[in-house]
Simulated assay, not measured.
Amino acid sequence: MSTTSEIEHWIGRMALGDRAAFSSIYSATSAKLFGVVLRILNDRSEAEDVLQEAFVKIWRNADRYASGEYSPMTWLIAIARNQAIDRIRARKPRTDRIDEAFDLADQAPGPEAQTIAASERRRIDGCLGELDDAKAGAVRGAYLEGFSYEELAAHFDVPVNTMRTWLRRSLLKLRECLQR
């Protein structure tokens, strides 16, 4: 796994037109970005196309990256995510006639669903708070941020099998906590 400073360096080199830096950043981040795009689109072929478009946009906009404002992975993920969302929006046909329009209802959850989700979020956060900081961080990294076992093991400086054990045991503790 590449470090934040390496990725920032490559973005800076890409802003100057360095193709080797582009190759390095692609190798280091394409799998993670593909996972983000695939989760949004649920179509492997379309996700591959969108990932390619995202990397074109990353290449063209490398000079716009502000290193103090966002982490480089946040910036890269935002570009890939937005590209996938743009693809979904492009699927919907535009119409000027109201009788041809569809999806007029607001798809956002209502107040009751939002309240239930907020309550569940507090319960989950409370149960995560009962775990050791490292194990809670590993769970968040794996299930909320999409890091692989290998990436988490490198981050926490433990063997991959230890990371798998941490996650399995942590999920069991979370399940016990949530069932109380």
Rank of each mutant, 00 (worst) to 15 (best):
L171F: 05
I124P: 02
I77F: 01
L167G: 05
A118H: 07
L171T: 10
R19K: 15
G17W: 10
L104N: 11
A47S: 14
D96F: 01
A153G: 00
D125W: 01
T115Y: 01
L38T: 05
P93L: 05
R97L: 13
D106G: 09
D125S: 06
F102T: 13
A20M: 09
S71K: 13
I88F: 06
W59K: 02
P111Y: 04
G110R: 14
S30N: 12
L41Q: 07
T29H: 01
L131E: 06
R169E: 10
P72K: 03
N61M: 06
S67E: 07
L171K: 15
F55C: 04
A62N: 10
Y143F: 15
A66K: 10
M73H: 09
N42D: 12
A117R: 15
R123V: 09
A31W: 02
S27T: 08
I25M: 15
G141L: 11
I40A: 07
E46S: 11
V37C: 12
D132P: 15
S5K: 14
A84F: 04
G137P: 11
R123S: 11
R97C: 04
H155M: 11
V36K: 10
H155Y: 08
Q52R: 11
G146P: 09
E69C: 10
A28M: 04
L16Y: 03
R81Y: 00
L172A: 15
N61C: 09
I77T: 15
E46Y: 01
L131H: 06
G126A: 08
R169I: 00
G68T: 01
P72E: 02
R64H: 10
Q179K: 13
S30E: 01
Y26Q: 06
A20D: 13
S67T: 04
S45I: 07
L167Q: 03
A142M: 08
S119Y: 08
A138V: 05
G110P: 13
R97P: 02
Q83H: 04
G146N: 09
S23E: 13
K32F: 07
V56A: 05
E48L: 05
S170D: 03
V37D: 08
M14R: 03
T4C: 07
D125F: 04
A154I: 01
L128A: 08
V160A: 09
A78G: 10
T4K: 15
Y149I: 10
E69M: 10
E130N: 12
P159L: 06
E151A: 12
A101S: 12
K135P: 00
S24L: 12
T74K: 01
F22A: 14
R91F: 00
N82Y: 04
K173Y: 02
E53W: 06
V160W: 00
W59Q: 04
A78D: 09
E112A: 11
Y65L: 01
K32R: 15
E145I: 00
S170P: 07
G146D: 09
S170F: 03
L171S: 11
D133G: 04
D43A: 12
Q114H: 01
